[in-house]
């Protein structure tokens, strides 16, 4: 339990550092990409703000957990519960297979309309498949 508390504390500090670093990076980027198209600047701002909001949300959650022993214990049980772990593993496995299959279909369909989109999707699909194979090899050696 103490180990879990330390883990939550570490996560809280990481989120705090992330918020600071992301805000700094954003303001730096604002000066560096002054001449970038509005769409690109908007995308960067959107992603940065979105990730900052998530980090702040997590910070509040971790702070509440650290101040309430009962909630901390509940969270510990929830995160170490073997059924929950099995569910998330199964979810990730199924989701990645479905995602790969849908991307393959999208590659075929988009091939009729746009060469650029089809090539991009094919590259993404190949990268995903390669990452899956590499991660699989890693765990085969680890276990």
């Amino acid at each position: 339990m103490e180990e879990f508390k330390k883990k939550i504390q570490r996560r809280f500090y990481l989120c705090t550092m992330y918020c600071g670093a992301a805000s700094g990076t954003y303001f730096l980027l604002q000066h560096l990409i002054k001449n970038a198209p509005d769409f690109s600047r908007g995308m960067i701002a959107g992603v940065m703000v979105g990730m900052d909001v998530i980090a702040v949300f997590l910070m509040i959650k971790y702070l509440m957990l650290l101040r309430n022993e009962k909630k901390l214990k509940e969270e510990y049980i929830k995160s170490t519960d073997e059924r929950n772990i099995a569910i998330s593993k199964e979810t990730m496995r199924t989701a990645s297979v479905v995602s790969l299959m849908l991307t393959a279909i999208a590659v075929i369909v988009s091939g009729f309309f746009s060469k650029v989109i089809a090539t991009t999707l094919f590259a993404e699909m190949t990268a995903s498949a390669l990452i899956t194979v590499i991660v699989n090899i890693f765990y085969k050696k680890k276990m």
């Binding site: 049980i77 929830k78 170490t80 519960d81 073997e82 059924r83 929950n84 099995a86």
Partner: peptide
């Protein structure tokens, strides 16, 4: 040290410990 849902699933035979 598990959730109540895990106990329910075990009792229903939906999940193997």
């Amino acid at each position: 040290s598990v959730t109540r849902q895990t106990i329910i699933s075990l009792e229903n035979g939906k999940y193997n410990a």
